[in-house]
Design a binder for these strands. Structure first.
Lengths: 192, 192
DNA sequence: CGTCTATTTGAATGTACTCAAAAGCGGTGG
DNA sequence: CCACCGCTTTTGAGTACATTCAAATAGACG
């Protein structure tokens, strides 16, 4: 865990030495390689993941077998199938590593113990979730209101650091268009 | 408030007489007529609304002036611009009554007092929000994975009681298609 | 019954899609 | 260092689905 400590996950929260040790023991550091799938649809979802480095994505496979990327997660993001994580139901999403990554895994149960042990963590996490919620809503709005080209431009603006990490076809599946369409959109934007 | 009491909003939570009175005093009953807009984009969002009867919708007006419906709320649903409600920022959504309604309005501050006064309310509400989150995700998935016809069928299945309350063009703006397209989809489904 | 609004229908257009082929890129082994 | 292979992206041509704009029909309400 080098210089990085669990304290850095919960920026701004004061930890005593004991609390820090307790908290640290609840997380598991996991190294994941590009292509690794750490969650499959149909499984239960006991854990969520804090992304320290690299990049992961959640995606959904529809009835016709097509993949749809829901979220990319890079440094300092959390990732899981939160619908299933919250409700205790089975995953409908898959989580795949798209760029070699180091993540910190924590179970729902540990999370709840942590809430009780360290004041501020529950609020910290609630705010994270509220922002997550807001980003989902923003996404619905852009799906409804924007053309392929606009969605692409808006993605670049919102996540300037992500694009270099990922394949074109992953981004296309996030934007809801085909890789061919994305390629054409880029070509058009290039000579503008 | 006839037979309905605030207790019915928080089904399954035990209220003492005092708690019930305190809770009730925090809510304001509001009657809204079809066409009334109870929240405008650009305003702050101090309150959320529990829908007792009737139907409301949140919608977004995009750069080109088009309306996009985000959510319909009928009996026993909550409605607000939650992104703004949570963060304290300004609304980007509008809330309009689409069918004469009775709602119970409560401010963020009162909500927090209520959390402290009545055990179980905070958890109750957290679960509501988790479901809301799940429904948003489901919506993103269907936007990405479904054709107009499939989205319409899936809407009917998920919200069988809502369709009769609302205008075609509101439903179209929810599905992300034009009223004309929705009309054609219905015509096709009618003789199948 | 007439007026206003909502929905349906029609025809032309456009945007993104599919399928297929070509070009580009990156890594591996000779 | 270069040639090859597999994977990714680009380009092309034809197609499909939803859109726009306009006109006609249907409903609701006074």
């Amino acid at each position: 865990m080098q210089n990085f400590t669990i304290k850095d996950i919960f920026k701004g929260i004061a930890f005593s030495q004991i609390q820090l040790e307790n908290a640290t023991s609840k997380f598991e550091e996991v190294s994941v390689k590009r292509g690794d799938v750490i969650l499959n649809a149909g499984q239960s979802v006991p854990s969520q993941y804090y992304v320290y480095s690299g990049c992961l994505r959640t995606y959904f496979i529809d009835a016709s077998g097509k993949e749809h990327t829901i979220q990319f997660a890079v440094n300092d993001w959390w990732i899981s199938d939160y619908t299933a994580f919250f409700t205790g139901g089975l995953a409908i999403l898959n989580i795949e590593c798209v760029q070699d990554a180091v993540v910190y895994k924590i179970s729902k149960e540990s999370m709840e113990v942590l809430y009780a042990e360290v004041p501020g963590v529950e609020t910290f996490f609630r705010i994270k979730m509220e922002r997550f919620f807001a980003s989902f809503q923003k996404r619905i709005l852009s799906d409804l209101a924007m053309s392929a080209k606009e969605k692409y431009k808006s993605f670049l603006k919102a996540y300037p650091n992500i694009e270099t990490n990922i394949k074109n076809y992953h981004l296309a599946s996030y934007l809801g268009i085909t890789p061919e369409s994305l390629s054409r959109v880029r070509a058009e934007l290039a000579h503008e």
